[in-house]
Design a protein around this nucleic acid. Structure first.
Lengths: 294, 294
DNA sequence: GTTCCGCATGAATCGATAG
DNA sequence: ACTATCGATTCATGCGGAA
């Protein structure tokens, strides 16, 4: 089933995952349909049924993942009747019973979250990126995601609101400034577990796309060239396309024909336009790792 | 027990909370001792025992909170043997059984957390701020925490002088929010549920302190002047001190004498400006019920 | 080729209305 | 009473057109 070429499959992951051999995947990065959303697609899983619905998939995922591989799950609670539903908490507990180790929880800070005003809550601007592993020993290539100090400062400042900047200035005496002076001597620093990315709203046909940078970051962190990256709910195929561009072997599964074709067209289009090695990473420092298609 | 004066108590919250009358507190903001850390405090709770340990406190908290009040819990998982422990997940589930509504989860992004390196993980730079309520109807003063619009820097702020920019940030914590929103209401937007604050670097004696801005933000959001703010694990007293400065009634409980004295000294120091006469002449042993007035 | 606006567009949530 | 649908609310982003 897996050779060294990216491929995408049309159908139900519950069936198609069975065709993937055990211990063959290095990274699973996926964003399954959220509870009760995208009703037209996966039939809209009710929050109360979500865990039960998801566990068969994750069982298969556990089987196909290598022992030193990583499973990254992008998921978020839904507000039901004014209260946050607990299915994500339940899911974590059940995944552990399946054998998964809950290793880390990254925060994706969505800078451009959906607007709105309500009497009892603010806009929801973050999502969970849950990291699971089969073993305490897993591959992690930390150096690949180091951030140049300049970029770090630039990005940091760019993302801060004006109030935040003012606060920082006021607190320069304590720690912030001092820390910067320590970092200046280095070229690259390690990131932390909070990712600042905007959602992509330019993709018209698929409503649930995350930005390229999200899978890109985890692919860099958890795989090397030639490794296998799997997305069992690929949607319009962002994960697979990025994986291919980064010279990994991307495997994607999608049950909706429309999304599958979207991914297919972009995948072939990408192959036609440029050789992957040209697009990805001669000099990583330049942060031109941004993979923009079109 | 509660009049309109801030006070701090030395002792076990399990006992002292019983002296607070039911439905009398508007906001509970606290950062309880984390599992297995701050071992001196409450005997160093093992992660496996954490939920069991916490529930008696939260039961009392449920009783003393007003129906339209809010409980904000700052807590974070501990990594045990390479894996994130699930006691926070379990705690949320159990608090719901106690009657609490899990309304929201804010993310505190600790901006200046120092980049570190471990083989399996990056620096942890965020914490949970779990919001619980007794009722779906609770007080929320959203206008008090509005922030400048994203591109404010580009449009308006250019023209403001540097002193104008700094004025808002004077760290007197005295409820200045409303003035700002009236002043430039057109340029202010509502915030979201990700808080960008630097960690406090200037405190020496208390290990688990958060920056003033953290309780300040929630006090502005969930209380008005004269309301009662409770911190049953006050540590060095940040919550109570900030509350008092913001003309709320702060109630703090701390079991460790050293922390209690730290809070006490800061509170009286602050009071010194207003009413010097009540500072001296109290025996320390009797101070459990000492009143601190603004 | 830049920079600068204007505009449409969202993994949303609440509350009212309708069946 | 209970569920289903709909409108109002709101703002960061990236696009296209214009200077």
């Amino acid at each position: 089933m897996i050779d060294n070429k990216s491929k995408i499959l049309l159908g139900d992951s519950n069936e198609l995952l069975k065709e993937i051999e055990s211990n063959s995947v290095d990274l699973i990065f996926t964003s399954p349909p959220y509870a009760d959303s995208r009703k037209n697609t996966y039939g809209g899983i009710h929050p109360d049924k979500y865990v039960e619905w998801f566990l068969p998939f994750s069982g298969q995922l556990f089987r196909v993942l290598k022992n030193d591989g990583t499973f990254v799950l992008n998921i978020k609670e839904k507000v039901v009747d004014g209260e946050k539903h607990t299915y994500v908490l339940d899911l974590i507990k059940e995944l552990r019973k399946q054998g998964w180790l809950w290793t880390e929880e990254f925060i994706w800070h969505k800078k451009n979250s959906f607007p709105g005003k309500w009497p009892n809550r603010f806009r929801d601007s973050w999502e969970r990126l849950l990291q699971f592993n089969k073993s305490k020993k897993f591959n992690m290539y930390q150096d690949e995601v180091m951030v140049p100090v300049g970029d770090w400062a630039k990005t940091r400042l760019k993302n801060l609101s004006e109030t935040d900047k003012k606060r920082d200035n006021a607190k320069n005496g304590s720690g912030f400034g001092k820390n910067i002076s320590n970092w200046v001597s280095r070229d690259m620093v390690y990131p932390n577990n909070v990712l600042h990315l905007a959602t992509e709203c330019n993709n018209k046909n698929h409503s649930a796309a995350f930005p390229d940078e999200l899978p890109e970051w985890f692919i860099k962190l958890f795989t090397k060239e030639g490794d296998v990256v799997l997305d069992p709910f690929m949607g319009s195929g962002t994960t697979v396309i990025v994986a291919q561009k980064m010279l990994r072997v991307g495997i994607g599964i999608e049950i909706i024909d429309e999304y599958y074709r979207l991914a297919e067209s972009q995948l072939t289009q990408n192959l036609f336009v440029a050789e992957p090695e040209i697009i990805y990473g001669k000099d990583r420092n330049k942060k031109t790792n941004k993979l923009h298609r079109k």
